[in-house]
């Protein structure tokens, strides 16, 4: 039986970001992913991964869904797990904000906290370890290696962008700005957009190493875990963004009624640069999650 909440995932609006300083004929659009039921783009891959696993019988015998997350995926797993009757365990670094941890627990999911000093990759390795050593108790969903992650964007996000951009401009995007967390968004969306328009420029936002931007990997250090599903050959260009750049854009967007988190600010910062260059008539990016999730970081003060 399909749960109604799954029908609320995806089908997000495409918002045009108008700006007087944009060159003539250049248009900038962003998908408003914060309107997904879990408040972030993560509902897309998580709903696909969890329903496919359910159909494949992965949770038989009371086995729990296990994965690592810094927040948004954890919330999506907890929310959709509760709706579908799948028990969920999430490994998060202990510095995941209180609002995230409490929301995950509110849905009845189990939280395993790891040492914040050791960073996100440590939580990921811990999830891998538990998935192997306690295979009787856990099924490791592994959003970094799960093909249903990028496929959710290939069949969802990418197709929606093509349809909505065609309806508004009569053409396909010339430039797409995304980033890498699990690699699912840029791989799935990028692949779909490139099939439609082989000349599309695909740009990845690269955050500072510290302080980083929630949800984005800098991928500069040889010790960083590179997601298995990431197809780096799709990426034409990498552009650095600081937290300060991202927050500045978040405040500008909030003044236009768009309340989004730092990774969205980072994407729009880079998307604006691409649009200002005048080389790409239609630039598309994503607004990944709601800004409410970051109140405790004091970014809105």
């Amino acid at each position: 039986m399909r749960h109604a909440i799954l029908d609320g995932v995806g089908g997000t609006p495409l918002i045009e970001l108008t700006d007087d300083t944009l060159p003539r004929g250049v248009r900038l659009f962003a998908k408003l992913e914060s309107v997904n039921p879990g408040g972030s783009i993560k509902d897309r891959p998580v709903s696909r991964m969890i329903t496919q696993a359910l159909e494949a019988g992965k949770f038989e015998g009371g086995r729990r869904l296990l994965d690592s997350s810094s927040g948004n995926a954890g919330i999506a797993y907890a929310m959709l797990g509760a709706a579908l009757g799948v028990p969920v365990t999430i490994v998060v670094p202990g510095n995941a904000s209180r609002e995230r941890q409490e929301r995950i627990r509110a849905h009845g999911a189990e939280l395993i906290l790891t040492d914040p000093i050791e960073g996100y990759d440590f939580a990921l390795r811990e999830a891998r370890r538990l998935g192997i050593e306690r295979a009787d108790r856990y099924w490791h969903c592994d959003q970094y290696g799960n093909e249903n992650n990028w496929r959710a964007h290939y069949e969802g996000t990418g197709v929606e962008i093509l349809e909505q951009v065609r309806a508004r401009t009569g053409g396909a995007p010339d430039c797409f700005v995304g980033g890498v967390g699990t690699g699912g968004t840029i791989t799935g969306t990028g692949r779909r957009l490139r099939e439609e328009n082989p000349g599309v420029r695909i740009v990845s936002v690269i955050p500072d190493v510290f302080p980083g931007i929630e949800g984005l990997k800098p991928l500069g250090d040889p010790h960083d875990i590179v997601p298995a599903i990431l197809d780096e050959s799709l990426i034409d260009d990498r552009v650095d963004v600081t937290m300060e750049d991202a927050i500045r854009i978040c405040h500008r967007l909030a003044r236009r009624g768009l309340f989004v988190g730092p990774s969205s600010g980072a994407y729009v910062h880079v998307a604006l640069q691409q649009a200002m260059s005048g080389r790409y008539p239609v630039v598309v990016t994503l607004l990944n999650d709601t800004g409410e999730r970051y109140v405790s970081t004091e970014m809105w003060r």
Binding site: N95, I117, G215
Partner: peptide, 28 residues
């Protein structure tokens, strides 16, 4: 230290200071 005296917060012998990003890093 944001809940104490900020950068003026006293450090005593044997204290352990930790530098922690406000967000958990991570994943979309």
């Amino acid at each position: 230290i944001r809940a104490l005296n900020g950068l003026d917060t006293e450090v005593k012998d044997g204290d352990v200071l930790s530098i922690v990003p406000a967000v958990a890093g991570g994943v979309f």
